[in-house]
């Protein structure tokens, strides 16, 4: 599904290398988790994959279903099936949540040569999905993320993911700022989307999310590289012992 090879990334504006040779493959149907200390490059990886400006790829490759991601515009990556749930979802005053999502759904459909979704179908679907995530109708009408609480923003990301039904979902700390119940809702939302044809890359600091979304593989990122890969037990190890011993092991 997602194949990242020897990915090196530096900041465009300054000579600062952030990713220093990331190798990572997420297979269809699997959930991979990435953990790692603050500043290790997890969000940078998610931004580079989704095409944000400001980074320069100096070496390596990233492919989604065999297609070179790095050559594509952000919107083309989205249409190809990539989705990033942002660590810090953006507030966009003046753009209604509903208008935004409908425009996004239909833009992706158009890019794939599919027919646009009718207003009625869209409304029906978004209402049903919002209900599952306990997002009330009023929030749908408000401008994108404006005045949303931290947890509401995260749930809104999951709603977008559910509506767009991407093939490869990257979740960047979607659990941070969520209360226990909201965490469960978000996990249920993710689990509902788990299937044979879909891959997940879940960035998190806490084991707690992984209790709900059981990962197949856990990676540890440190200083711009994956330093260890293992099963779910690796997350528990981090939870109990922190990163110091892993870094030492690596060195």
């Amino acid at each position: 599904m997602l194949e990242i090879k020897n990915l090196h990334v530096k900041l465009e504006e300054e000579d600062k290398a952030i990713l220093k040779g990331v190798d990572l493959t997420v297979e269809a149907g699997k959930v991979h988790a990435i953990m790692g200390p603050n500043g290790s490059g997890k969000s940078t990886l998610s931004y580079v994959l989704s095409g944000r400006d400001g980074y320069e790829v100096t070496d390596g490759s990233a492919e989604l279903l065999g297609e070179d991601l790095l050559e594509l515009e952000p919107e083309e990556r989205a249409a190809a099936g990539l989705f990033l749930a942002f660590q810090y979802p953006i507030e966009i005053p003046g753009v209604g949540n509903m208008t935004f999502l409908r425009t996004a759904v239909n833009a992706q459909r158009k890019a794939r040569g599919q027919e646009e979704m009718s207003s009625a179908d869209f409304l029906k679907e978004i209402r049903a999905k919002a209900k599952e995530l306990k997002i009330d109708a009023d929030m749908l009408k408000r401008p994108v993320n404006v005045g949303f609480s931290g947890g509401e923003k995260k749930r809104n990301e999951i709603l977008q993911m559910a509506m767009l039904a991407p093939k490869m979902c990257i979740l960047d700390e979607t659990d941070s700022g969520l209360d226990v119940d909201a965490m469960k809702l978000v996990a249920d939302g993710v689990n509902a989307l788990r299937d044979e044809g879909r891959g997940f890359l879940v960035i998190t600091h806490y084991q707690r999310l992984l209790d709900h979304i059981k990962p197949d593989v856990v990676h540890i990122m440190s200083e711009g590289r994956i330093i260890k890969t293992g099963g779910p037990e690796l997350a528990l190890e981090v939870e109990n012992e922190g990163y110091a011993h892993l870094k030492a092991e690596e060195a």
Partner: peptide, 28 residues
Amino acid sequence: EDSLFYLRARGIPRGPAEDLMTIAFIAE
């Protein structure tokens, strides 16, 4: 730019995304 990237990351091409932002700008 951050807003623009957010819209594009959801699949809305640059042009229409800029239009959405522009219309949002005059909304008040």
